[in-house]
Amino acid sequence: MENTTNTAAAVDNSEFSFKRASQAKEIWRRFRKSKGALIGLILLLIIVGVLLFAPLFISYDAAIESDFANVLAKPSKEHIFGMDGYGHDIFARIIYGGRTSLTIALIATVTSCLFGSALGAIAGYFGGWVDSLIMRSLDIFMSVPDILFTMAVVVALGANAVNLIIALTLAYFSNYVRLVRSQVLTLSEQDYVEAARAGGSGNARIILKHIIPNAIGVIIVNVTLNVAKIIIYESTLSFLNLGMPPPQPEWGMMLSEAREFMRPAPHLLIFPAAAIVLCACSVNLVGDGLRDALDPHLKS
C-alpha cells in the first residue's frame, strides 16, 4: 500500500524519475537483507556468466562430436562430468544445452508475459462484454490440459525453437491474464486514476502511465517465479522428445537419453538433473527475494 501511494504521489508531482530511483534503492536495500536472495542472485550471475562466455573455454564441437572410445566414461580430468552414451562430453552438453534451454525459457517468459498482460489489461480496463469474452474463452482454453495442448502444437508445427516458444507462450500466458486483470480492476478504482480521467487523459495514457507502473511490481515477481517453471516445463518437453531436434543438446533430452544407462552410469542422470535444479533454485531464490522486497506485507 505504501508503495502504491508513493508512486501515485510521484506521478502527480511529475517527479517521476527522481522518486523511482529512490524506490529502486529502497527495494535493493530490502532485497540485500535476505541472505537467500543474495545467494540466488550470485548463483544466477555465475550461471549466466558461464553460459555467456562458454565459447571461450569449451568448444561446441565437444558437445556434438562422438568419441566412441570413451562412451559412458566416468568423470575424469579431461571430462569433468564424464561422457554420455554417444561419447559426447557431458560438461560441454550441459553448457551448450543450458544456453539453448535458458534462451528459450527467457524468450518464452517475455512473450507469455506480454501476451497475457495485454489481454488481462484489456479485459480489466474495458470490462463489460470484452471482459466476459476474454475470460470465458480463457476458461475454455484452460480446461485443455496444457501439456497435451503443447504437445499437439509441437507435433503439428514441428519441433524447433520458434514453435517451442509458441507452445510455451500458450501454456503460460493465462497466469498473466488473470493477474493483470485483477490488478487493473483494483487500480482503476484508485483516486489518482479518477483524477487523471477528470484531467482529460485518454485510455492509452491512463493504462501506460498510471496503471502499468503501479502493477509492475507484482508482474515482475510473477515473471521471475515463472522463469523457473518454464525452465522445468521446457526440460519436460525435451524429455518427451518434443524439444529442439538433435544433435542440439538440451537438458531434458540428456536426461531422456540417460534412462537407458542409469544403472551403469548414474553420472548421466546426476549432472543434467543438478543443472536444472540449480538453475530453477537460484531463479526461485531471486524471485522470493524480490517478492519480499517489493511487498513487505506478503513476507511471512
Binding site: 519436460t236 531434458g252 540417460a258 542422470l269 536444472i276 535444479v277 530453477a280
Partner: peptide
C-alpha cells in the same frame, strides 16, 4: 519443499527408479 519445487517430476521419477528399482 523449496528444493522439490525446483525438481521436474520426471527427474523425481528417475531418481526413485534408480534408487528403489535398480539399486
Amino acid at each position: 519443499s523449496f528444493f522439490i519445487a525446483a525438481i521436474p517430476s520426471f527427474v523425481l521419477g528417475m531418481v526413485l527408479l534408480l534408487v528403489f528399482a535398480q539399486q
